[in-house]
Every structure is written in C-alpha cells, then in structure tokens.
C-alpha cells in the first residue's frame, strides 16, 4: 500500500510538473528542484486531494516542501 501511495504521488507530480518520474526522489524539493511557484503548489495539493479523496488544509500544505513530505502526509492521513 505504501509503495502504491509513493508511485501515485510521484506520478501526479511528474505529470503536473512535466518531469521524468525517475528523477523524483523523497528529497526532491518542490521549489528548489522543480521550480514550483505558489500556483503550482496549490494545483498539486488539489491533485493530491482528488487522487486520494482527502482534504489538505492550507496550514498542512504549507509544511509540504519535499516529495517525501507529501508522501508522508498522504500515508498518515490514510491511517
């Protein structure tokens, strides 16, 4: 299940940011590595909410800076 979340999150990010999924790791930083701006991040949060049928608050979203943090947040929300 965990690896499934990881795959789905990485696939969403790859699609949204137009990058090769193989280049995305837990340490990939949205702003520094993927050049995301605030609108990209807001889109990405909605993508994650839709994909995993959950709600991510603005406060929670602001703490997500890396791909690993996004995956961890989804996994914890699903427990």
């Amino acid at each position: 299940m965990a690896s499934d979340v990881r795959e789905r999150v990485i696939s969403l990010i790859a699609e949204r940011m137009d990058v090769d999924p193989d280049q995305i790791t837990d340490d990939t930083h949205f702003v520094n590595d993927l050049q995301s701006d605030s609108l990209d991040m807001a889109e990405l949060v909605i993508d994650l909410e839709e994909e995993f049928d959950l709600s991510i608050s603005d406060e929670e979203a602001q703490k997500i800076e890396t791909v690993g943090q996004a995956i961890k947040h989804i996994e914890e929300s699903q427990q």
Binding site: L39, A42, E43, I46, E49, E50, S55
Partner: peptide
Amino acid sequence: RSGPNRTSPLMIP
C-alpha cells in the same frame, strides 16, 4: 462536480 475547493488556482490567470 467537486465543489468550490477543487477548482484550479490557475483558473483566473
């Protein structure tokens, strides 16, 4: 379909 919290932040621009 999904309500007001799921529209795109890029919609207006």
